[in-house]
């Protein structure tokens, strides 16, 4: 029994220590954002690494998610004779929820884990220490550009994901199943509000970008400098990012859409 409390206490303390470490780290990252923003070339490089290289998986996933939504949505809607509403069903699901959320989950798996592994290896091979000894701040030089790349890339990826999804739904719904194209688009446009739906969705993606970006760089920067340490940091990035994205999504959805429709 005492053993149990001892373990619980130790766990609590280690979690608190980790949170404290994370808070200090986030403070340091934010304090150096302005400096980091001046290094355009570095940022471009990291957007290429995180954003451009995630494009393929985002496009393909978006297309398939849209196609599946169309098939399943049609199945349900046609029972009530409302197959024409397919466009609005698909577009609203994508723009409000699936676009930002699925893009963020894919981004955490594709780019977040890679960033963690990269920074973790830089730490394990003393590259960060070497930089620090060369009087170059590793947080401004290595961490901030990677964090900002996530911040910039994820909203772009989310809107591309949603667009690909709408196109996928169009291909299945209109071209394959044979819903009237006019009804598909007009229902969609009647129900999707640019500001309330599209921009809110983008804002969600931005918040997810901050979360996934911070978690990835934090886990990498504080990874144990061993092969095992880097691999478990990579896993933690994906797990913690995914849970954070889903939790944040719930909170944001309640805040944004409560009272609307």
């Amino acid at each position: 029994m005492v053993d149990f409390f001892e373990r619980l206490g130790a766990l609590t303390l280690s979690v608190l220590a980790r949170l404290g470490l994370a808070t200090l780290f986030f403070g340091a990252v934010f304090a150096r954002m302005a400096q980091g923003a001046k290094r355009g070339a570095l940022l471009v490089r990291e957007i290429h690494f995180a954003g451009v290289r995630s494009l393929a998986i985002i496009l393909v996933s978006g297309l398939f998610v849209g196609m599946v939504l169309a098939v399943q949505g049609y199945e349900v809607l046609q029972r009530f004779g409302s197959a024409d509403a397919l466009g609005s069903l698909v577009a609203l699901s994508l723009v409000r929820e699936l676009g930002p959320v699925v893009a963020a989950l894919l981004f955490a798996g594709r780019a977040g884990s890679a960033v963690t592994a990269e920074i973790g290896l830089m730490r394990a091979t003393e590259q960060l220490a070497a930089m620090d000894m060369m009087a170059v701040d590793p947080i401004s030089r290595v961490i901030v550009p990677r964090f900002m790349a996530a911040l910039v890339s994820l909203p772009i990826l989310a809107v591309i994901f949603s667009s690909a999804g709408v196109i996928g739904a169009y291909l299945v719904g209109v071209e394959l199943i044979g819903i009237d194209a006019g009804a598909f688009w007009s229902q969609m446009r009647a129900s999707v509000d640019f500001r309330l739906d599209v921009l809110n969705g983008l804002f969600k993606a931005l918040v997810f970008g901050v979360a996934v970006g911070l978690i990835s760089v934090f886990e990498g920067y504080h990874a144990a400098p061993t092969a095992e340490g880097v691999s478990s940091a990579t896993t933690r990035t994906v797990v913690i990012s995914s849970l954070s994205v889903l939790t944040l999504d719930f909170i944001l959805t309640v805040l944004m859409f409560r009272g609307l429709n």
Binding site: S163, M188, D197, V198
Partner: peptide, 8 residues
Amino acid sequence: FMALKVGN
């Protein structure tokens, strides 16, 4: 595309 075709 979101602004003009999907949304209003």
